[in-house]
Amino acid sequence: MVYQMLMNGALAGLIYVIMALGFTMIFGIMRIVNFAHGEFYMIGAFVVLLLFGSLGLPFFAAVLAGGVAAAVLGMVLERLLFRRLVHDEMPGMIMSLAVAIILKSLGLITFGPAEHTVPRPFTGTWQAFGAVAPWDRTVVAICALIILAIFYLFLKHSRLGLAMKAVAQDPETASLMGVKSGQIYRAAFGVACLLAGLAGALMAPIYNVGPYMGEMPMLKAFVVVILGGLGSILGAVVGGLLLGLSEAFLSTLLSPLAALIASFAMVLIVVIVRPNGLLGRTAR
């Protein structure tokens, strides 16, 4: 049962990580708490519902399309709405709440209130150490790992990734190096929404697809990011896995309610003891 709990926790945690990465990235670079992050997850899922569920296109093509659709919308919204609120935390937060409500309502108008089901591209299970893992969730986990690796390489070795980190740490000095901050904001928002869209697209066949599906992942991302430290990429990875595992163990051993309480208790403790998160940088 311990192995099964580890398995459950890792499978859930990896998606939390992908969600939290984008969320923390937008905050790190633009100082905007993007409460609409869950809605980009929803958009990715709806694209899979349409392209894979209804039109029968290949699953991974639909997943990519979902990510790209979320990214494109994210970049448009960044230019129109968020660009002017960069580094202005409160108005940025309120704008993101407004965007979240509007996107949710548009989802409701377009797809109706009922939750939709996407057919499963993978079925069956595999076993290790007596723990069972469904193939569909395993594929999601593998994709999440691949996305993580690509994201890491992008940040570590690409010119754009380097510029993003530089802007996050000191936007003015970055501009002295010739970095156009607008380009970086667009790229950061695009990449963050791409990640959220991919997460939603991957999860579409696993959970139900509906206009409110983004709320829970958004909440989890929020918890993860506070645990790991707002703006910290490594913190998002550690926080995501920590949350996934703690939920898996506590839900199984006690109850889902206990797991929920525990996750917020962890947030409280971290906020009190380490206000910058487990791996957050201390205030500059």
């Binding site: 010119r159 380097l162 980190k165 740490q169 970055a174 002295l176 190096m177 010739g178 500059r284």
Partner: peptide, 24 residues
Amino acid sequence: LCPEGRRLFPDLTVYENICMGAYR
């Protein structure tokens, strides 16, 4: 301009800082 207070990117390596200088 080499700004006042050095303003290195604190979490980047020295090499990465130089790379940023050569961003163009």
